[in-house]
Design a protein around this nucleic acid. Structure first.
Lengths: 339, 339
DNA sequence: TTTATTTACGAAAACGGTTGCGAGAAAATG
DNA sequence: CATTTTCTCGCAACCGTTTTCGTAAATAAA
């Protein structure tokens, strides 16, 4: 079909291009009569304005970028939902980028974001990222950026997270109360604040309980492929932990499978608690105790902040920090004696 | 910071805008020496071309739209991954739109897609959609569109699906072989081909097994909120089914929870099989037999087709139909006697 | 040396909207 | 009736890049 643009409308109505444009934008300069004619013809010809032409002129793209490590994770799926729900009401479009947990990818993506393609960026950094340069370059272009969940230190901008330290503490204390004497923490990164904070909380709880630092086990599964192997190794080691904290969701399935395979009973032999938003947690075998992050709300809050930063030039993102607490849902995987 | 564009480069190098543009695009018209100078200054000033200006001129946006019912579903998450993996290699950007299973939303989204914002559309239609008009309008604008998973009949374009009918048959026969005499099918839509086809396969298997049509139970849970209630009603009915086929993933958790609550044992009292890509299926209680769709591959295939349609004008999408088979993974939830 | 051909670059017109400003006509005011 | 104000609308520049075409200089061919 023909590409109908403003010029076509102008010719058909014997009006100037600018009049059409103003009529479509409901300008006070145009008479109601003319507006009606324009609107009618526009809908009749199925006219849809070209967003790129207008963003070129207005220097606004009405588009934001969401940069994630991966999308096959309940947390991020829900977060996207939250982001989208806000973007829709604001009339913004959402570009999704995946870093696949690689710093190099993340860098390339953020470079592209400097092009004017987007008005702002929501990011949850990759597990590899431990430098801030690529983000600073974006800020140098005055492009608002908001961290959600996974933040990068050394950057002054808004962040929306959950109470990771407290939850690490909570998870560890929960295990201790349920009788664990040597719980272990399974992490996926040595630099991600969410992992570090959760682990710090975990350590704090154990130290407070009088467990010597050298007895505190922390395991790093930085590589997806070797995760299964590493987990099995831990479970078969002579001083097998009697409790396990999975710092992120994707650790859960390998742990459960390994326990089943090795005939290690959850919760009798080992108690398991996970940071996860799995909706199948209650129907797992056994039902999994979770620290459930408010993923949808985090997405919503992050998007809300970003749009404030985009739309209100007076709004200063730098000092904004929102913490939305997670909740502990106790289920079978940590049942046992209460000390 | 300053917005550095081609004009800035031109001024600094005492060259014309067109020369810069050509140099950046490595045109044969420009000397190597000049190219080197341009490239150097560009990277030094951190120049990033404005994609909207270029797409305005070239009438190509290097962007595609992915329209989904929702993203908090493993199938769609994995599909997005597949799509992204192809888009990345092609240098395309991916806009995500959510219809939330509403036809009206889907229509609005597709209208926007006529604006030139995207070069093509990948869509999995909402469960409400049963008309093709909104899609035809898009096609009238010559915008390539590819269905994946959930297609709409009456539209001539490429589609990538899995073998739904055969899998319905397979699922039903599996239940029959495991001793079920009155399995039921739980659907979420009366119009979605994936649901219809799966159900047709289910019915065909039952009829072939000599079960009279009037005894074949099919249940529609079109509304998320009432799903729990409906499922419980079925499970408490006098002629409770002894087998259940969940046509989509989100039915699984409510079914399991209801069974646990009502003390209905899976698989002894009722066997359950689900169309799902849940990676927690093996660790559920009991482990869930699934018909697992190749979500990632479907996403990849759909994206590959779309890009062919976009880039090769000779390529005719209308006759393309790719069927990627799903696989049955038998687990505890359907164990029992083999007839 | 003259003529033909490259080579390397610039001017300008797109692409599709937006917007400040000017101006004619109509209406309101004096 | 003269003058000012209000209403409508058109002109033209602009956003940043691409691309066609023209052309001067350098090189090659005659």
């Amino acid at each position: 079909m023909s590409k109908v643009n403003i010029k076509v409308l102008a010719e058909q109505l014997q009006l100037s291009v600018s009049t059409i444009s103003k009529a479509l934008r409901d300008s006070y300069e145009i008479s109601d009569e003319t507006k009606k004619k324009v609107l009618e013809l526009a809908s009749q010809l199925n006219y849809v304005p070209n967003p790129y032409a207008s963003s070129l002129r207005k220097k606004k793209s009405k588009t934001i970028a969401v940069v994630l490590p991966e999308v096959a994770d309940n947390f991020f799926s829900l977060a996207i939902n939250g982001i989208q729900s806000i973007a829709e009401t604001k009339g913004y479009h959402v570009l999704i980028y995946l870093s696949h947990e690689k710093y190099a990818n993340e860098k390339t993506i953020l470079e592209d974001c400097q092009s004017g393609r987007v008005d702002g960026v929501l990011i949850s950094i990759s597990s590899e990222t431990n430098t801030a340069d690529h983000i600073k370059r974006l800020q140098a272009q005055n492009i608002p950026l908001v961290f959600f969940d996974r933040e990068q230190e050394g950057i002054e901008t808004a962040r929306v997270t959950t109470n990771d330290f407290e939850c690490g503490l909570l998870a560890a204390n929960h295990l201790l109360q349920r009788g664990c004497r040597k719980p272990a923490f399974v992490s996926i990164s040595q630099s991600l604040p969410i992992c570090l904070n959760r682990m710090e909380g975990f350590k704090a709880a154990l130290l407070q309980a009088g467990i010597p630092e050298m007895d505190i086990q922390t395991i790093y599964c930085t590589d997806d492929d070797s995760m299964n192997h590493q987990i099995k190794t831990i479970l078969q080691s002579p001083d097998r932990p009697d409790g396990l904290i999975a710092s992120v969701e994707k650790i859960v399935t390998p742990v459960y499978l390994a326990c089943h395979e090795l005939k290690i009973n959850i919760p009798n032999d080992i108690k398991v608690i996970a940071f996860a938003t799995l909706d199948t947690a209650p129907i797992l075998n056994p039902p999994l105790t979770t620290i459930t992050q408010p993923a949808f709300e985090i997405g919503k809050a992050a998007a809300t902040l970003l749009f404030k930063g985009i739309e209100k030039s007076t709004f200063d993102l730098r000092k904004e920090k929102v913490v939305i607490p997670s909740a502990l849902f106790e289920r079978e995987s940590t049942r046992g004696l209460t000390s």
